[in-house]
């Protein structure tokens, strides 16, 4: 399988703290990759670096072999690398449908005039898949935490070029129904060729969804492998339980 996302010696410092330290990370096209590690291990920073929210201190990020290091988040998204945030970044005073259509029509183009019907149809289809289509006319700020997570995820799929979706803690604080819906969405879109990088503390979900898992600790990758392989690894146990040197 060919590589869709690759990082090369990626490092990000915040003053004296090295949040991500020389990470070489690659994900194959069509994969659902798990990215785990204890709190403060650098998972979200890595996602921020890939999606352009942070610029790396050094190192490179490649997408489809193209160097996207230092591109603005909107340029990275336009290329097809989307992301979610643990705390959903929605447009609270706008309706769910407006939230869904923003990626299509907020770029000052006149696409709206000829594509509105198709875009609205697609938006409602995605909201239906997310189980929140009945709320499409409501303001996003009225949603529950789980519904907000679903909306944020569905909105990402409105970007037509999407080929990689970075999900930051999609299962955090959501109930079992929402969790199942999110997993169904991931499976559906993965079957259509979208690559996922899944940051989560939910080990059961990671085991269920991901063929391969990358473990970060103190900003570095300590192991990659199947869930069974990493669960048996002493470094991983030490990282989570605070053992080792």
């Amino acid at each position: 399988m060919d590589t869709i996302i690759q990082t090369q010696d990626l490092t990000r410092r915040f003053g004296g703290l090295v949040a991500v330290n020389g990470v070489n990370f690659s994900v194959a096209r069509g994969e659902v990759r798990g990215l785990i590690g204890p709190n403060g291990s650098g998972k979200t920073t890595l996602i921020n670096l890939i999606s352009g929210v942070y610029e790396p201190t050094s190192g490179k990020v490649f997408f489809n072999g193209e160097d996207i290091t230092g591109l603005a988040p909107n340029r990275v998204a336009q290329k097809g690398v989307l992301r979610t945030f643990q705390i959903p970044r929605l447009f609270g005073s706008m309706t769910l449908l407006e939230n869904m259509l923003i990626p299509r029509f907020a770029d000052f183009s006149l696409d709206y005039l000829k594509q509105r019907g198709a875009a609205e149809e697609r938006a409602l289809e995605l909201l239906e898949m997310a189980g929140i289509a009945h709320l499409s006319g409501h303001q996003a700020k009225t949603l529950s935490g789980g519904q907000k997570a679903l909306l944020q995820m569905a909105r990402g799929f409105m970007v037509e070029e999407i080929s990689v979706f970075l999900l930051d803690e999609p299962f955090a604080g959501v109930n079992i129904v929402v969790k199942d819906t999110i997993m169904a969405l991931i499976n559906k879109m993965a079957s259509e060729g979208v690559t996922f990088i899944l940051v989560s503390h939910e080990m059961a979900s990671i085991r269920q969804m991901c063929q391969k898992v990358t473990v970060l600790a103190e900003g570095s990758i300590i192991i990659e492998g199947t869930m069974d392989e990493i669960a048996a690894d002493q470094q991983v146990i030490d990282a989570y339980l605070g053992g080792g040197a």
Binding site: S51, V53, A72, P73, N74, A77, Q78, L82, R83, F85, R89, L90, F91, I102, P103, A106, D107, R155, G156, M158, V159
Partner: peptide
């Protein structure tokens, strides 16, 4: 940040 990360 939300609008940037959907490509705008």
């Amino acid at each position: 940040v939300g609008i940037q990360t959907v490509g705008i």
